[in-house]
Write a protein that binds this DNA or RNA. Structure first.
Lengths: 202, 202
DNA sequence: GCAATTTCCGAACACCGTGTCCGGTATCGT
DNA sequence: ACGATACCGGACACGGTGTTCGGAAATTGC
């Protein structure tokens, strides 16, 4: 007994409708009725497949995750043997300006970003395997990579949209691999060792 | 005509009620009626002062921001001349485990974190003034500091709650000032120069 | 093709939270 | 004390959510 074609049709219709709507308006502003309208699906049918709008988003992103992992696997199996996810992402996000806007957007952005972060972290977690983490906690490293990537991406699109992908990538690498010059970080980190000592001693 | 005492009473009552509720349940799950209940304020009165729950949150955080800036200013004016915000934050967040939980929480967390991030960024922005940014875009630096701090903080509370504040701070400084060892970042950054070249050449 | 099964529709429904309005009352500033 | 202003609280319309159910339509397996 193969899977009923009707269910895959309705589900993909709903998936597609969601992304179409995300491209058009804030995620938070999207209503279930909107999705039903866009997908041409009955209300009861929707709730027969998903428990809520958020549930739909989750499962949509699971699809995205599987796709990313698949792509990466393909690249690894290929002869080229090379794979630079960050660079590739920077190169291609420009083609999805509307998605960018959705991710940057005021209110809906937060939940959406949260979900996307989770997916990226999942992919990285699978990718890193059990390799060395340079003495740093693996999970912290993963979260930091995701956060730094997203920070760079958002800054790029919001403050320097004209910048070339390669430049954004370079900034990203600098932040991630070399960090900040000490004097730049002073306002947050403290002035110098003397100060730190005086504080902890008091 | 001095400011009517009634308005400051109701407003602080609402501020306090909000934080009390945030400590008890998810931000998203908090309803206006909950706040009204907790603060003993009439519905119409609430809407006479704030336009929505989010508005209340915003203004609450503006208060927090002013407080942070004030504290910092005081520290700068003091003779000690030292100030290590990050370290101080790491030292004290342990006392607010409930707030931590609120910030970490599944759904409500996202909006809340967004707002808090904004406040931190504001404070830093004021703090940095026009100093050098080491050739890096100032806004990017600010965002990166905030993001790295929050990443470390969340990881700490979620994965190593027993860790000492000083240790968490040390990890934070390493991520921020030295970055990641290249081999650790490979899964996200690419293998080596040869690979990068082959990709960009193709 | 046909029958049995599964899915879909769509309309109706109760529920809850939001934001607004208004007359009466209490509290404030001077 | 008096005028102004803020508060109360109940009622209201509105919109979105999630559920239910009988009948129609599509799909599968044979």
């Amino acid at each position: 007994m193969a899977i009923d074609r009707r269910v895959v049709r309705t589900r993909t219709a709903l998936y597609d409708a969601l992304v179409a709507l995300i491209r058009a308006k804030d995620y938070e502003a999207i209503t279930v009725d909107d999705i039903l309208d866009e997908a041409n699906v009955g209300r009861s049918t929707f709730y027969a497949h998903f428990t809520s709008k958020d549930d739909l988003l989750q499962r949509s992103l699971e699809r995205l995750r599987d796709l990313l992992v698949g792509v990466r696997q393909g690249a690894l199996d290929g002869v080229e043997g090379g794979w630079d996810p960050a660079r590739a992402l920077f190169e291609h996000v420009g083609e999805y300006a509307d998605v960018q806007a959705a991710l940057a957007g005021g209110h809906g952005g937060a939940v959406l970003r949260e979900a996307v972060d989770k997916v990226l972290a999942d992919v990285l977690r699978q990718t890193m395997g059990a390799g060395p983490a340079g003495g740093l906690p693996r999970e912290l490293v993963i979260q930091h990579m995701v956060a730094t990537f997203n920070t760079t991406l958002r800054w790029w699109r919001e403050h320097r949209p004209a910048m070339a992908p390669a430049e954004a990538d370079a900034l990203f690498r600098q932040l991630l691999l070399r960090g900040l010059p000490a004097d730049v970080a002073t306002p947050f980190i403290g002035a110098d060792e003397r100060v730190v000592k005086s504080l902890s001693g008091a």
